[in-house]
Nucleic acid binder design. Sequence first.
DNA 1: CTCTGTGCAAAGCGTTTGCAAACGA
DNA 2: TCGTTTGCAAACGCTTTGCACAGAG
Lengths: 134, 134
Amino acid sequence: MTNYTSLLKDYNLKVTPQRVAIVEELSLNGHMNIDDLYKKLLAKFPSISLATIYKNVNAMIEKVFLSEVKIPNTKSVFELVKNEHAHLVCSSCGSIEDINLNVQSVLEEASQASAFTIDSTNLVLGGLCPNCKK
Amino acid sequence: MTNYTSLLKDYNLKVTPQRVAIVEELSLNGHMNIDDLYKKLLAKFPSISLATIYKNVNAMIEKVFLSEVKIPNTKSVFELVKNEHAHLVCSSCGSIEDINLNVQSVLEEASQASAFTIDSTNLVLGGLCPNCKK
DNA sequence: CTCTGTGCAAAGCGTTTGCAAACGA
DNA sequence: TCGTTTGCAAACGCTTTGCACAGAG
């Protein structure tokens, strides 16, 4: 079992029930947009406000604990920071999947082909998920 | 010299001076956000409105003539649709460069590793451009 | 001539901000 | 206790919409 409390502390974020719930939800669901988070947290905190979600998500992004994934034609989603990876997004149902393709080799190729020093990625691949193909 | 007029016609977009100017600017600059476009067009059409820019950009996206590139921590930029490619974005000065890394192999790898059928990409690599490294 | 595009002003939406009360350490 | 967070309401900024007039085909 993951200890969200100490995880928050590690990132110098004060522990509040709302924050724990955010981390918990993201940990369970992988990717969520602001509204997803809001709806989930409303169940636990009937009077929580959207502003609280925004403030916390932004604070967590600042601590490099969360990251925002920008996706064409949809709202951004947020996820706990982990290894570099790419995202598959279904253009039909909107489902999102992580994929561990060899990002490292892509980065090396890009570094060599350009004069940039690359340190971050936002890799989104769009298409149809297995379910929507049927 | 590129003929922007017939290019617009090819995409079933009525030819207006404003549209020609948008295509021209994008063609010259590669990537521009809405404000960049607005400022440039203001020079040619002192009474152009932001709404016109938005309407045209959206119309062109709908015709798959333009595409929007979503970039972390900044506004989206728009570009004329061309071959699949990745984008390098300087986190210091914001400059954007196209890079023709081997997207095809990435797509194949991703297709095999997942059950998705992939048909579009939004690949953004962040880092420092040669100028900002100094 | 007809239909579409333009420019303006207003409306709409998502996000941020200010503030008093509540809470965490 | 002191500083931070919460929740509410208001403010903000970007994008879209409605409408009358102008322009493209």
